[in-house]
């Protein structure tokens, strides 16, 4: 039963892509860096190339972490919606299956947070 109600109740989803003024939501999580208490949520243009995410978006999000200076994107391991994923910097988000409310996680071997504490 999709809801306990007195009649055939239909909810209106509040966060469909059309409500975000041409953007889509993308969630990012940097594994083992819980100084950032939660993954982040960003509204991004679906035609943004993945390379721009790396050079223009994520530095503003994670650049304040002491590990950031040692981060080499070549070494990063990604997952998209919990499946292993190899991003293509040239292609847009949309073109490589990063949809509205998709989750991107990354981890860089050797970078495990402040003093290795996953912070």
């Amino acid at each position: 039963m999709p809801v306990t109600a007195m009649y055939d109740y239909q909810g209106q989803p509040k966060d469909v892509q059309a409500n975000f003024h041409g953007n889509q939501l993308v969630y990012f999580g940097w594994d083992k860096h819980l100084m950032f208490c939660a993954p982040v949520c960003l509204p991004l243009p679906p035609d943004m190339p993945f390379g721009a995410v790396l050079t223009e978006v994520l530095p503003g999000v994670y650049g304040s972490h002491p590990d950031w200076a040692r981060l080499d994107w070549e070494q990063a391991e990604w997952s998209l919606d919990q499946q292993p994923f190899t991003p293509d910097p040239q292609q847009s988000l949309e073109a490589q299956g990063i949809h509205h409310k998709s989750l991107l996680r990354f981890r860089v071997p050797g970078l495990d947070g402040i003093a290795g504490s996953a912070s």
Partner: peptide
């Protein structure tokens, strides 16, 4: 059907 309507503050800011 109930929770798809959640008023999530972060999403509301972006909307």
């Amino acid at each position: 059907e109930k929770y798809v309507q959640a008023w999530l503050p972060v999403h509301q800011i972006y909307q």
